[in-house]
Write a protein that binds this DNA or RNA. Structure first.
Lengths: 244, 244
DNA sequence: TAGATTGTTAATCGATTAACAATC
DNA sequence: TAGATTGTTAATCGATTAACAATC
């Protein structure tokens, strides 16, 4: 009966706004694919070639890139270096992001030594640990500092992104303290669901969740029987238990 | 004009089949939440309580659980232990999954020492590295073996899931060899897009992608200006560069 | 111009959510 | 029975995909 209610129109915003989440999550993949092409001396790539390098289909890639603007040339393709820069700018990698890591156990060491960290616009400005025995230890180019230094490091370097690689039991309290100190984005490696106030982003990386998702699909493959056509002319593929 | 073409009906399959991917990805989260509740001695939980513990809304949780069956009691809620078992069974965690890890650098060490590994139905049956200098080194309960042992370990233990924590340059060749040896699920920590034949599942965990997604949102917060209401009465929030 | 390839449209598919009848 | 809460429906929203007009 009544006309559709007037709705806030996304057109009002700048074109750089409102990129779908699914697209945002793929931009880093495109960026990496472009870097790979550039390293191999390739100056121009079609959506088809770029999509292959990124592991997606070309329709999706073109749709994704269309949210950023028109950076391709019809009949030609995309200039690798130009597109790479545009995506980096869109993500915000034309500036450096200071990052603090709390919890320097095995995983924290691995993160601190991860070269992709520095090379991609992120810089570690603090490695913090609550264990006094670890404070002062050298890890890569850095020295582990006391957890108590968190507020100082965050304000001194203007840290916006914090990484949590503590045990699960400590993660929420570390997160709370990060947020109180001014951090508004958290990358969490601890296997807990973190509570944060509105305006704070949390992303979670969870080994055991990933393994469980694989196990689910693996189990279904076994149930479906061996062979790509899921023929059921034999018993399900046998899997040995842990003891051989 | 013509009636819709006859389509293969999912109803034909058992109810345990065809759980949406988004739901599958949340089952491990529910499982962990249930374990947490059980640890605190809670025997029964409503969808509302369970959803809070898992960090989702209760409608989504009920919808997700409905794909597994009717394991709740109207007016009462869910029996924590019973539901926990049903989800574990659905995922396939009532059996143990032998896992092999290739690439025992910093990250490989962290993964090998990760306790959630063993405790959640996964068992490491091999730590492999291509560097002869590392072979023989003790990591947790295991000893690093030569990369050459891959085929033997996979067939001896019936390994279906392989973890790649090598440098990016080695990842594709390791993956190919895993697949040739019979592995059908790969968890990849190397920052490359892996090519695999149909029927092989790959999941990727990528630190720098996660950081970049956070950076994108962080940048938008800065552009929107300080304050939760995105007021633009001031300059964008200042972020210091890496050098203070 | 002819060929190639982008950027966009529109159809389809899958995921989320609110609401509520069923039922403990 | 009255109150509580599940399981399901249906509406909405967001993501994917194929197709193709626009255009280099």
């Amino acid at each position: 009966m009544s006309p559709p209610s007037p709705r806030r129109n996304d057109q009002d915003a700048r074109p750089s706004r409102g990129i779908p989440e699914a697209t945002v999550a793929r931009l880093p993949v495109y960026l990496r694919a472009l870097t790979g092409l550039a390293d191999r001396g390739i100056a121009t790539a079609s959506s088809e070639e770029l999509a292959r390098a990124a592991g997606v289909n070309s329709a999706k890639l073109r749709k994704d890139l269309s949210y950023l603007g028109s950076y391709g040339t019809r009949g030609v393709g995309y200039d690798v270096e130009y597109l790479r820069y545009q995506i980096a700018r869109e993500i915000g990698l034309t500036q450096d992001w200071p990052v603090v890591i709390v919890g320097i156990g095995n995983l924290g060491h691995a993160l601190a030594n991860y070269s992709g960290f520095v090379s991609r616009g992120f810089g570690i400005v603090g490695l913090l640990d609550a264990d006094p025995a670890r404070v002062g230890e050298r890890v890569g180019d850095h020295v582990i500092q006391a957890y108590n230094e968190l507020e100082r490091v965050v304000s001194e370097y203007g840290v916006a992104i914090g990484v949590i690689s503590t045990p699960a039991t400590a993660a929420q309290e570390v997160c709370d303290r990060m947020v109180a100190a001014g951090i508004t984005s958290v990358l969490n490696f601890a296997p807990v669901v973190l509570s944060v106030p509105p305006g704070v982003d949390v992303r979670k990386v969870d080994l055991s969740t990933e393994l469980q998702i694989l196990a689910y699909h693996e189990q279904r493959k076994a149930l479906a029987g061996p062979g790509p056509l899921s023929q059921v002319d034999g018993l399900p593929a046998e899997r040995s238990p842990l003891i051989p």
